[in-house]
Amino acid sequence: MNVNQRIQSVDILRGITIVGMILVNNPGDWSHIYAPLSHAEWHGLTPTDLIFPFFLFIVGISIFYAYKSKQPNASTYKKLGLRSLKLIGLGLVLKAFTPLFPFVQDWEHIRFMGVLQRIGIVFFVTAVLYLNCNWKMLLGVAVTILLGYWLLLGFVPLPNGMAPTFDRASNNWSNYIDLQILGTHMWQPDYDPEGVLGTVSAIATCILGVLVGKLLDTPLKSKTKILFLTGVILLTLGYFWNAYFPINKALWSSSFVLVTAGYGTVILAVIYYIVDVKQWHFGAVFKQVGMNAITIYFLSEFIAKSFYLIPVGADANVHSWLYNTFFSFDGLVAKLSSLCYALVIVLIYVGLGTYLFKKNIFIKV
């Protein structure tokens, strides 16, 4: 889409999401974080747990607009595949890179999955489905994924005969599959938050984004109300399902998909009403960040990882030196110091997003 023809609320929500990602990923001290800025221990939901599903939800909306006039042919599939591979490649670079010689981690320490890898896989599968299915078929695929995931994790015995569980344990199907496929290349030995089965479930999140994109594209005058009602329905279904399949980001449970898509739809409806219907000035800075979302996210992760790995003196690194020198003081609450560090990092990348936007630089991945 031309920059001037874009739906402003979608870009603003994307920008808010990226800002949220940078905020929660860059505390000054991981031991001192305010509860809303940390993930749930296992089951449950915090504001931080909304960030990644919001981004995949927005990817789905973007797929609807970017490919609604495209044909399912070799040329389109080639472009989809290349974009997906770029995202996966960037994700692998983040996992394998080290700022010190030989600049690549040992093979056994490289984590295969990650945020960008999941985005790349989910984007490709959802876009292919969108090109070949009508909205009813897409809804059917999403429902099948969510029901199938619940039935597998909750009722199908593991190959060793153990009863399945939703807990963080060896007899959890998600962990079992990750161990078989990823082996030691996981975030933790007992689970990976971007694991294999969770990535399949995340496709449903993206499909719901496609369907919400279709709602946004309708000429109905009551569009805002329909969006809001859709969000409330998703929330109701998700919280009801929570009693049987707990809301869990690490598993990307079916209830988690519905609840996060519900919150995303409700928030989008509010922003849509303010910006696209009433045309009030709101969130311009978030729109500017959202126009280069992947680039800004990649840079933030690349630099943050480098800061943690580049030593300063005998027992510090760039990150700890900056934090202890400029943010950590006697008498100042540790959590507040940690938050201030994160906010400064956010301001730096917001400034970068604003600069790129004003220079009309939009880096596509």
Rank of each mutant, 00 (worst) to 15 (best):
L80Q: 03
M21E: 12
L90S: 05
K95H: 11
K86M: 13
L50R: 00
I88H: 00
P53W: 00
L85I: 10
I22D: 09
P47M: 05
D29H: 10
K70E: 15
K79W: 00
T48Q: 11
S31E: 14
G15Q: 12
H39R: 06
L87S: 02
L92S: 04
P36M: 11
V19W: 14
T76R: 07
L13R: 01
K68V: 05
L90A: 06
D11T: 12
I33Q: 07
T17R: 13
I61E: 08
Y65A: 07
L80N: 03
I63R: 05
P53M: 08
T76L: 10
R83I: 02
G15H: 13
H43N: 15
D29L: 08
E41N: 12
I88A: 05
F57T: 00
G20M: 14
G81T: 01
S31C: 04
V59E: 05
G91H: 10
H39S: 14
P27T: 07
T76Q: 04
I12A: 09
S84V: 03
K78I: 06
L80Y: 05
S9I: 01
S62D: 06
S69Q: 15
I18D: 13
L80M: 05
D29T: 02
M21P: 12
L87T: 02
L37D: 04
Y65M: 09
H43I: 06
I61G: 04
K78V: 02
W42C: 07
K68D: 11
V10I: 15
K70L: 10
I88K: 04
G28K: 07
V24M: 14
S69H: 14
H32V: 01
N73G: 11
I51N: 03
I88S: 03
L94M: 12
R83K: 13
G60C: 13
P72I: 12
I18K: 15
D49I: 07
L92N: 05
S9Q: 08
Y67E: 05
T46A: 04
G91K: 10
A74E: 09
G28M: 08
M21K: 13
I12D: 06
V19G: 10
G44Q: 02
H43Q: 01
I12C: 11
P36N: 13
L85Y: 01
A66F: 00
P27N: 09
D11P: 14
L13N: 01
D29G: 01
K79E: 09
L37T: 01
H43G: 03
K79T: 08
I58Y: 00
N25A: 14
Q71V: 14
S84C: 15
L50N: 00
L82N: 09
T17G: 15
H43F: 15
A40S: 15
W42G: 02
T76N: 08
I61A: 11
H43T: 07
A40H: 08
P72Y: 11
K86A: 10
P47R: 07
A66M: 14
S69L: 12
F64R: 08
V24P: 10
V19T: 15
K78C: 00
S9P: 09
G44A: 09
L45M: 13
W42Q: 02
V24D: 12
S31D: 14
L80A: 06
L85P: 03
L85S: 04
G44I: 04
F52L: 02
I58A: 00
L37M: 15
F52T: 00
W30G: 09
I51S: 02
S84T: 10
